[in-house]
Every structure is written in structure tokens, then in C-alpha cells.
Design a protein around this nucleic acid. Structure first.
Lengths: 98, 98
DNA sequence: AATTAATATCGTAAAATTACGATGATAAAA
DNA sequence: TTTTATCATCGTAATTTTACGATATTAATT
């Protein structure tokens, strides 16, 4: 039981669900909002911004990165994150055309 | 652990996440797509349309109804479901204005 | 070379999700 | 009134998510 049945749905349905799922947590919404407002920031800024531990935030960042909603680039000893505009457009257009 | 921290985020962030979460499963995307294409249908149509059991589909319908994305109205011994256009507009505008 | 700072990952526990069959509830039909 | 059809809910098991502390990892700094 509880086994996922991805194979029973179309790639489009799975992709939409995947993107929506990544947006389906307030912490990840907060992360995206912050990234939109400051354009880009390092992980540590988010740790100070959000009431969650560093490891938890790192996990949320990974979830967003896995579906392509954000990108991370090495910046000295930090990692600079920003919204991936292409994927963001994809998410919006998918929802609008549904 | 694993305790949800809804109280640490704004109502807006929670609402966005709640809506996105409801969209975060391919079966629920399939349900919405079907509802959009036929305008309205009874639960049983979805049971025949989707490769999932009746109880599972009923659960998914409940999830969509709980966040207001769909409405159900009694139609004899069936229940007729349709997309709630207001909530749907809310979802789209929220994403577009994020 | 040792220290510090910034992230990621591991291990783990609690909670939530997902799926199904079985059972209830309700209204039409016989 | 019994049966049938439609849908919801309950109980349950497997899976996934969420959160944290502890522990790597890596690069700048001292």
C-alpha cells in the first residue's frame, strides 16, 4: 500500500504534480518569496530568515532544486541560490493552460 | 519530529502551500483535467476513468474539496463535481503574483 | 597547518500521505 | 420494502515527508 503509481499517469500529469508538490510547503513558498524579493541569496541568509534549522532548510532547497525551480552556484564558500526563470515560467504556463 | 510548523508562516504562505499541495498528485491533476474537459461529472465517471479504486478516488476528491478547488452537489443518488472557478482563479493569480 | 564559515548529507523519529478492501449511508428503482 | 447504485468513511499497511542534531565537506581565513 501507499505505493506511488506514477506509471499510471501521463508524463505531463506527473510533471505538473511534481512542480505543485514542490510548492506544497509554506517553508518552500517562503524561500521562493525571499528569492524573488532579493533576486538571489546564499543559503545562510535563509537560515537567518526562516525559523527552521540549517539542515531542514537545506532539505527544502534540495526539493526545489530537484524539480528545477531554483539553481545554486558556488560563490566562494557559500552557495548562491536564485529562481530558475524558465522553470518558473513553465509552472505558471502549465497552471494557466490546465 | 515531523511536526508541521504551520504557525511559523504567514496565512498567505500557508494558503499557497495548501493549494499547491492539493495539486501535488497526478491523480488529482487527472481529476481536474477531466472536470475541465467535461465541465462536470459524477464521482463514478472518475472511477471508470482512472486506474484507482473508488475509495482512493473519493479520498482525492475530498482533498480537492477541502481546499475549495472543487465543489460537489447532490444529484439523485450521485454527487456531481465541478471545478470551483473562484478558487481556481485564486490559485492562478496567487502563482502569477508570487 | 589549523581554524572558521557555509552547506550538504546521514541517521532517525514523528507525522502525513497514499492505497485498498470492507463497511456505512443514502436515494432511486424494482 | 427489498434491492441496487453511488459515494463516503473506517481500518490498516506501506511509503513518503518533515524536522532535527550530528557529522562530513569544502573553501576562505588566520
Amino acid at each position: 500500500m501507499g505505493t506511488s503509481k506514477k506509471n499510471l499517469f501521463t508524463p505531463e500529469q506527473n510533471r505538473i504534480a511534481e512542480l505543485a508538490k514542490a510548492l506544497g510547503h509554506p517553508a518552500r513558498i517562503a524561500i521562493l518569496q525571499h528569492l524573488f524579493s532579493v533576486n538571489a541569496c546564499i543559503c545562510n541568509d535563509l537560515v537567518e530568515e526562516l525559523p527552521l534549522s540549517q539542515s531542514t532548510i537545506s532539505q527544502h532547497l534540495k526539493a526545489l532544486k530537484n524539480v528545477g525551480l531554483i539553481q545554486g552556484s558556488i560563490e566562494g564558500k557559500s552557495i548562491c541560490y536564485c529562481v530558475d526563470q524558465d522553470t518558473w515560467k513553465e509552472a505558471k504556463s502549465i497552471l494557466n493552460s490546465l
